[in-house]
Write a protein that binds this DNA or RNA. Structure first.
Lengths: 156, 156
DNA sequence: CCCATACTGGACTAACATAGTCCCATATAG
DNA sequence: CTATATGGGACTATGTTAGTCCAGTATGGG
């Protein structure tokens, strides 16, 4: 199923909400109301996101959360990195993990390449597009190079 | 992490083994030895695979398993379909599932398209290539249309 | 100064999925 | 008839996920 978790799905909804309300702070409450997700879940996810480079928080009364970067410079890959950890298809493909079956397993390398391809595809999709989907989604045609400019996030 | 389960990984190893030993029957024992996977696990997976269109089994003494189709006509997408069920990234994107958040969730559609893209990419990779990886994996460059012929498996 | 509003950090639980094993029934070659 | 296989499924331990809750800390406003 190649699945992502529900929390990641929710997290994306939250990011979309922040993208739509870019420019001012949204409290966890605002986001919960806007997304119709349960407040505790939203709180949990926002805490998580606030620790990432994607979202910034302001504490205290009148505080809240904002995107740290314009939505157009946040990719689906960035989002998955934050919400699901470094994304890879198999444990083997997480680079440092050592696979004692490696000898009899010529597959590992292949999955890795597949993984890289998928990652590339996800890197092409921006939060701006997720938040504001055009009639026909341009990016998802993986086979046509669009020459689109990708802005990488500062990794710090 | 976009992860596939270990069993799927093992299953792929098993299919690769069958691909390499194409032409004659391999018993579960043979496969377990060849792949260095635990026998019970191999048995379980072979049973599963034998119910799919990918693998055929012969019962009784001297029985065993063979691929039902040439490795070049089995894609990574076919494999994932069998081992992980219909692959999709979110529950929402499994088509029939109704999402009560749909109103506040413009994201769903986007994930679906992403999903379709990934699926397309996986459809381009064949078991033959997994079993016998060329120096540089040609297929995984998702951005270049190769015009490769894809043979679909009979769905029955 | 005090209090209401929010974020921060982490503990905790219930539900579910996964990995792995085992047992018994059935088929077939010799 | 027996040894070798697959077929079907039950079963369990373990881990992950989703979801909730609580105590701590920062801050704006009265």
């Amino acid at each position: 199923m190649l699945r992502i978790s529900k929390l990641t799905d929710y997290g994306t909804m939250i990011l979309v909400h922040l993208a739509v309300h870019q420019g001012h702070l949204s409290s966890a409450n605002d986001v919960a109301t806007g997304t119709r997700l349960a407040l505790p879940t939203v709180q949990k996810l926002l805490k998580l996101l606030a620790r990432s480079p994607l979202v910034r928080s302001v504490r205290g009364a009148e505080g809240g959360y904002v995107l740290a970067h314009p939505p157009a410079s946040i990719s689906a890959a960035d989002i998955l990195d934050v919400l699901e950890g470094p994304l890879s298809i198999t444990e083997c493909s997480t680079a440092e993990s050592r696979c004692e079956l490696e000898d009899g397993c010529p597959v590992g390398g292949a999955w890795q390449k597949i993984n890289r391809g998928i990652r590339g595809a996800l890197g092409e999709i921006t939060l701006a597009e997720l938040a504001h989907p055009p009639r026909e989604f341009p990016l998802v045609d993986l086979s046509g190079r669009t020459g689109r400019v990708r802005h990488r996030l500062p990794t710090g």
